[in-house]
Every structure is written in C-alpha cells, then in structure tokens.
C-alpha cells in the first residue's frame, strides 16, 4: 500500500488552507492509508503546545504520524519539550527516506 508523506509549510495562523491540509491527512488515514506529516518553516508554529487550533487538535488525535523540522523549530526558539505530545522533532533526512521508499510526497 502506498503511504503519504505531507510536508506542511504553512501555519493555520497565516494561511487558512493549512486546516484543509490537516483535514486531508486525517481523512486519508481514517480511510486506512498510512500518513506522515512533517511540519516545516512557519508550519511548525502550531506544534508549540501553547497554541490552540481545532483542526490541528483533531489531527493530533488522529493516527497521522506528526513530525516537526528541528531546524525550523530552532529558528523559532521552540524547544522540543514544548511541542504538543505526539509530535516528534526530525530532520529532512526523513523526507529523503520517504521519497526513496516510494511514498507519495506532497508539498503544501
């Protein structure tokens, strides 16, 4: 079965379309397709546990595997221990591995 790997570069706080991308990931995983999402750039801001966004909260409670780009977190002074539970800090080698494994990789 194909897996999806979504690179989410937008934050719901500056691009409402981000919430549609969260919903897409959740719908895919609810239909039985494995989905991973890597938050990059401003997309990482929602990973801070102090943020509140209902669409992202639904994503957090889904089976989508969530990662946040360590480089982008560092740029924004977000510590790994400040992430919402369930989000794992990662590097871009995760994307390279997904591409080489044949995952469907989508940039948002």
């Amino acid at each position: 079965m194909k897996r999806y790997f979504i690179i989410q570069s937008q934050s719901p706080f500056n691009d409402p379309a981000a919430e549609q991308h969260y919903a897409l990931a959740k719908d895919l995983v609810d239909s039985g397709v494995p989905v991973r999402m890597l938050l990059v750039q401003h997309g990482t801001t929602v990973a801070h546990q102090g943020t509140q966004n209902s669409a992202f909260q639904q994503l957090l409670s889904s089976d989508v595997e969530l990662y946040a780009d360590r480089f982008a977190l560092h740029e924004r002074q977000i510590q790994e221990e400040e992430l919402h539970p369930g989000i794992v800090a990662a590097d871009l080698d995760l994307v390279a591995e997904a591409l080489l494994a044949g995952d469907k990789v989508i940039w948002h």
Binding site: D91, L92, D93, V95, A96, E97, L99, L100
Partner: peptide, 10 residues
C-alpha cells in the same frame, strides 16, 4: 532537502 537526499545516496 537536496543535501539530505545526497546524504541518503540519491
């Protein structure tokens, strides 16, 4: 991402 891909041997 390009660098990570080279690191991964692509």
């Amino acid at each position: 991402l390009l660098e990570a891909s080279l690191e991964a041997g692509a």
